[in-house]
Every structure is written in C-alpha cells, then in structure tokens.
Amino acid sequence: MADLSTSYMGLPLINPLIASSSPLTGNLDDARRLEDAGAAAIILPSLFEEELLQDQQQMHEFMDHQAIGHGEADSFLPPSSDYKSHLDHYLETIATIKAAIDIPVIGSLNGVSLAGWLEHGADLQQAGCDALELNIYYVPANPEETGSDVESRYLQILENLCAQFTLPIGIKISHSFSSIAHFVRQLERAGAKGTALFNRFYQPDIDLSSLQVTPKIQLSNSIESLERIRWIALLRAHVQMDLAATGGFHDANDVIKAVLAGADAVYLCSSLLQHGIQRLPEILSDISDWMHVHEYESIAQLKGSVCQKHAIEPAAYERANYLKTLKSYQRSDNN
C-alpha cells in the first residue's frame, strides 16, 4: 500500500485530497461523511464579511425599522434577541464540526475592510479552526485601480493577519493577476503558508427571456485543471510554501498530474457536488492503483517529479510551446 500522506499549510494530511470550500463542507452531516470517505481535510464555506454586513443591516431593517415610538405598532416581528445572526450560526457550526471530526478543519474568510478581515479572522481562530484560508474573491472592475494596488492590498492584509494570528494562513487566488509567479512569491514573503491556485468565479449569465443578468453556478470540468497544473509546475521550484491545486479536478488522473507537477494537495469541489461524496474514495483508490502499477511508493516520491524544473522538456510548460501545439492540432474533418 503506497504512502499517500502529504501536508498543506504545514498541516499533516493523510492524503492530498481536501474537500474545498462549498455548501458541502458547511454542515455536520456532510463533514462527517467527508471524513469517513477519506477527505484529508475540509475547508469551510467562506465567511463573507459583505454578507455579514448585509445580514445585520437586513435584520435591523426588518426587525427595528418601526421602532420609532409609534404608539400602536413599534415592530412587526417578535424581538430579535432569540435569533442567531449569520455569524453566530457560522461559528457554532465550526465548533460542532471541529468537535465531531479528527481531520483538520480549515476556516475560509473573505473580507471587505482590513478591520473586517482581522475581526473575523480572530473569530475563526477562536472557533477552533486549524488553519485559515483567505479567499480572494474580488472582481477588479474599477478602472482607476492598478494591478499593483490590488496586489499590495492583499499583501497588506496577509501581513497583518500573519502578524496577529498563530494559526497557519494560506490564500486562494484567482488567475486574474498579471504576474502570477511574482505575486505568489510575494505572498510567501508576506507569511503565507500555502497558496491554492485558482479559484473560479461565479459567472453572471444573461437570461434570454427576461434580459436579467443572473449569477450562475457552473461546475468545472477536467479541462480546467490543465491551467492549474501548468502554474503549479512553473511555480514549484520558485517557492518553498505548500501549493494546492483547485479547479477542475474530477478524477485520479487529474489529481496525479497535479501532484506530479508539484502540488502538495488537491481540492475537490465540483466533482463532489456533481457525483456525490462517494467520488472521493473512488479517486483515492484509483490513485493507489496507479501508484502501484507505476511502482511509486509514496506521494512524497512523485510530488514535483514533473514540475518545470524536473520535466523532460521544461519549455513545454511555457508559451514557446504554443506554435507546436497548434501544429499538432488536427481538424477532425481532415481525418
């Protein structure tokens, strides 16, 4: 039996498969099932500061807006003291999940203000999370904001959090950075213990009958994993920190490729939402089978063996290869 153990953000993991932030990781039943199915860690659904603010404002609006001393009706809903805020509920869920499972539980946070990142980071640390992932879920649509403005804001947040907290802090980034290699190295310097590449954004879609623009959840497919694999391969030799691959990992082949490229861990989300939690043990057993057939003893052995530095043809990971790829493309009608 091959040794599948690895680590991410410095946390020892029994294998490379982490259940990525999604509704699946936000409740006790599924968290238990994920552990039983072999997940090495779970990352909770992100706590969105914006959502908390909205929640507070909405509760205030609906509960207290009538409290203006109107003689007959100064409220419409029973007093709010019994009701849990979104934050209360979130923190309670972490505590119950943490008490019920043994694998690492990683908190995930998306802030708006520096104060918010710090305040809620502290909440998550206190609730017992083993590590914290910063989810940079931000669409830089402001034409006045430069790329370095965006980058330095995140670096500043990261530095502040790392200075303040003892738990390991990782970051999940999107691919919308102009110099990913440079940025990831700066993240490491700012104190990140791990970087996950790349988050996927919900894509707004246009409803052709109402012309409304509505956010749509599109699950990923395996093709998307290639971009992640490439970047992990390119980055592997340039950073010491742990790297995780997220986006498009659906089967054992996808996962093995990521590890060969240098990933310490691979997140699963769409594949579990699509096929159910039972997908996880299937992938694990397929990985073991592949390692057995190809005579690998451990993940540690194969990890990074095909990163850019160790690849048979290192340039294949870079753009120089573009022309060759095009030439190798055959039109199906020419077959």
Binding site: Q66, A73, D74, S75, F76, P78
Partner: peptide, 24 residues
C-alpha cells in the same frame, strides 16, 4: 396574513411556519 396595523400579531390567516407575535 398577520395583524399589520397593531404590529404583526398572528391571525388565523397566518401561514404555518411564519414567525409573528404570539408565534415566535
């Protein structure tokens, strides 16, 4: 589906599951 003018008390028109005064 609720006594509106007097501040949201349950009436017999209040649906199952709605939170209102007297049905906190």
């Amino acid at each position: 589906e609720v006594y509106s003018n007097t501040g949201g008390q349950t009436s017999k028109a209040t649906p199952r599951g709605a939170v209102a005064k007297f049905s906190a």
